[in-house]
Amino acid sequence: MSRLQSRDEARVVDHAMELFWTKGYERTSLGELTEELGIPRERLYQAFGDKHGLFLRALERYRDAQARSLAPALLSEGLVLPRIRAIMLGYLQLAAEEAEPRGCLIANTAGEALPGDPAVADCLAEVLAVVEDGFRQGLEHAVRQGELPEGVDLAANAAMLTMLLQGLQVLVKLEPDPLRLTPAVDAALAGLNALSRRAALRSV
Score class of each variant (00 low, 15 high):
L195F: 07
L165Q: 01
G146F: 01
L189E: 01
A67W: 02
A156Q: 03
N193M: 14
S203G: 15
G151T: 02
H15S: 14
P118D: 13
D117P: 09
V131M: 13
R7D: 14
G31A: 09
T34H: 00
D186G: 05
M163S: 02
S203L: 15
A65K: 14
L114A: 10
P72T: 13
A110N: 09
Q137M: 12
P115H: 04
L201C: 10
H52M: 13
P82S: 14
A188H: 06
P72C: 13
A67F: 08
Q145K: 11
D50F: 06
V130I: 10
V131F: 07
G31I: 01
A200C: 11
G167I: 01
E77L: 15
A10G: 09
L128E: 08
L54N: 04
Q145C: 07
L174I: 03
L54K: 07
D133C: 09
L30Y: 05
Q137K: 13
V13C: 06
V131L: 14
R136V: 01
F20S: 08
L154C: 01
F48D: 08
R136A: 15
D122Y: 11
L201G: 11
V12D: 03
L4C: 04
E35T: 10
A86M: 09
A129E: 12
L70R: 12
S196Y: 02
L161I: 00
K173D: 01
R83M: 11
